[in-house]
Design a protein around this nucleic acid. Sequence first.
DNA 1: TCCATTTTGATAATGATTATCATTATCATT
DNA 2: AATGATAATGATAATCATTATCAAAATGGA
Lengths: 143, 143
Amino acid sequence: MEYYRAVFNEFLRARKLKCTGQRDSILDVFLKTERHLTADEIYGLAKKRNPKIGYATVYRTLNLLYEVGLAREVNWGDGKIRYEHKYRHRHHDHLICTKCGKSIEVFDKQLEKIQAKLSREKEFIPTHHQLNIYGVCDKCRKR
Amino acid sequence: MEYYRAVFNEFLRARKLKCTGQRDSILDVFLKTERHLTADEIYGLAKKRNPKIGYATVYRTLNLLYEVGLAREVNWGDGKIRYEHKYRHRHHDHLICTKCGKSIEVFDKQLEKIQAKLSREKEFIPTHHQLNIYGVCDKCRKR
DNA sequence: TCCATTTTGATAATGATTATCATTATCATT
DNA sequence: AATGATAATGATAATCATTATCAAAATGGA
Ligand SMILES: [Mn+2]
Ligand SMILES: [Mn+2]
Ligand SMILES: [Zn+2]
Ligand SMILES: [Zn+2]
């Protein structure tokens, strides 16, 4: 975790941005949680350790984490962006339960290959993608 | 196109809803366009043939078209829902150019199979999915 | 035609995110 | 440690797509 903080600080220095307590708090909260957090959730958690932190700073810092490549933005179509760890985490897709909201992470090499093939066929240069599979999870089905 | 209108009217009757000129106009506009339209675009087109139509009615009618299965909602992560034909149209995914906004429709049977496999492995019952591949289209790359 | 029910459109409300801007904090340089 | 140029912050207003409200109008079966 020290390492990630170093990555962030290096990024700030390179961009002539400043190290601040708020940025530290937000990065900490983000790194300490493995869940997919919304800006609002991160705001709530960061506020605990730094009560006078503002919404705008949370949004601004999350964008920095995105830009430096520490965070990935996830869009599940419910109107809010979620953030998950990206640095040294392999890309994956999500199964999303429409009953309980839980998500399951999945990865398939073949699936990624087919996407590359489809792009190639259309002379399209892919930069990133997002696959959401919506449905009902095991627990919710049995309930 | 008469057929689709019949499907819609049958749905309205079954739900004890009423046939109205506004609903006709909006369905017409939707059926006549093969593009992926936002509510706002449909509002603009419908207003041409029925100038006193309101925004709310457009949103309400699009939800009906979704419920009856004539329309599919598409979310490209830019904050607005788009609508495309669903009835008698095969499911497909999209390559989305981040330069010009154009989309290319693609389909791969193997890709769908792998998704089913991934769901099965997690004991997850999938209902629908959405795959967006973002990147740069042929034209934009050459420009 | 009558009338219960549904629909409509203008507009207010909502909710997530972004913009604004005066005040405060950071940090390289004295 | 003090300075000062620059960046950061937070309260709050603005934005933008979508939804809710509600009085007035339209629909359709009897
Ligand atoms: Mn994830
Ligand atoms: Mn399409
Ligand atoms: Zn569930
Ligand atoms: Zn393009």
